[in-house]
């Protein structure tokens, strides 16, 4: 390590590469394990948002659907901030009113 690199690290100009490696691995493994490519995931995200938007007014810009992995179990996590419920929900058979966390 040169002094320059050392100073960079000291000043946290760049995170240590192990952290970057871990983050990149976790992301790529979540996709590998679910066998979903980013394109399919994006399509699913749009469809989920569409369905949820029938019931509640959600913040489309803030909405986030992603894959998370822990202990070899991959979960589909949807985080959809609700602005307010829509007074007259569309007529679809369901009893769940808060599908905020999938």
């Amino acid at each position: 390590m040169t002094v320059k690199e050392f100073i960079d690290k000291l000043l946290r100009r760049q995170p240590a590469s192990a952290e970057t490696a871990k983050e990149r691995l976790q992301l790529v493994l979540a996709h590998d394990r679910s066998d979903l490519n980013p394109e399919l995931l994006e399509q699913m995200r749009r469809e989920i948002l569409e369905v949820v938007a029938r019931y509640v007014e959600i913040d489309l810009a803030e909405g986030d659907v992603s894959l998370e992995t822990e202990d070899r179990v991959t979960a589909l996590v949807a985080n959809l901030p609700i602005r307010r419920p829509i007074a007259q929900p569309a007529k679809v058979e369901t009893s769940e009113q808060q599908p905020a966390q999938a």
Partner: peptide
């Protein structure tokens, strides 16, 4: 590893 330039055992 101690310089955090390699994935740790726990990672």
């Amino acid at each position: 590893m101690s310089n955090q330039e390699m994935l740790s055992v726990d990672d």
